[in-house]
Amino acid sequence: MDFQLALLIDAVVAGLLLGGFYAAVTAGITIAFGILDIVNIAHPAFIILGSYIAYIVNTSFGIDPILVSILMLPAFYALGAAVYQVYYLSFEKRGQDALRGLAFFFGLLFITEVGLILTFGVDYRYVNAAYIGGTVQLGPMNLPLRMLVPFVVSMILIGALQYFLARTFTGRAIMAVAQDQFALRLMAADPVRIKRIAFGISIGVAAMAGAFLIVIQPVEPSVGREYIGRVFAICVLGGMGSLPGTVIAAMLLGVVESITSTFYGPSWAPAVAFGFLLLTLAFRPAGILGR
C-alpha cells in the first residue's frame, strides 16, 4: 500500500479515537455553556484537576484511572454545585454584568493552574494501567489501547448523558431551563436548583474526562490551556447544547488535528482548534448543524 495513504488512514483513525475523547471533554461545556449559558472558561481547570486526582489515586493505591473517574464523580459534582452557588449568588442573582462572571471563571482557571504548579511542579505526570502500552490489531492497523479505552468509555459516557437529558425528568428540566422558564415552572421545578444540578454534572463530566486524558497522554498543569480553544470550538461548531452535534464536531476536529500533526508536525496542532473556532465564530456561529 502507498505509504502516504497508509499514513493518512492512520491519521484519520487516530483522529476519530481522539475525537471521541474530545467529545467527553466538551460534553460538560455543552451543558454549561450551550444549555445553561454559563461561560465557564475554567472548564479545562476542572479537567486537569481530574487528571491529577486520577494520578494521585493511581500512584498511591494502584486503582485503575477509569475506575477512579467514576469514584470521584460525586466529589466533583458537589464541587460544581458549590461553584454554581457562588456564581449564582454573586453574579446571576445580582444581575451583575457578564464581564465580572467571566473574570470570576478566569480567576478560577488561573488559581487552579498556578496552584497545581506550586504543588506538583511543571513535570509531566502519568498513570499506570494494564492496557497502557497495549495495542489491538484491526486489519492492517494497530490501535493503541491507551486511545481505544478512553474512546469507548467516552462514548458510553456521552450515551448515558444523552439518555439522561432526553429521557429523565431532571434531564428534561435541564433542557427546558435554557429555552422556556415558563414550561419549567409548569413542571414545578426550581430553575436555580436545576441549574445547580446541571452545572454539577458538567463539572463531574469534566473531571471524568480529565482521568481519560491522563490515560492518553502525560499531563502537566498548563496542558489545560490547549483545551480552552478545543472545548469551545467543538461546542460552538456542534451547535451549542447538542450532544450529538458535539460528537460530530469533536470527531471532525480530532481528524483535522491528527492529519495536521501527521503531515505538518505536532507544533501546529494547537492552532488548528483555535483556527477552527475563529472561523466558526466568524462564518458559522450557529454551528455545522445549525440553521
Partner: peptide
C-alpha cells in the same frame, strides 16, 4: 471573549 483566548494560542 472566547475568541480572544483563541487568538493568543493561534
Amino acid at each position: 471573549a472566547i475568541a480572544t483566548l483563541a487568538l493568543a494560542v493561534v
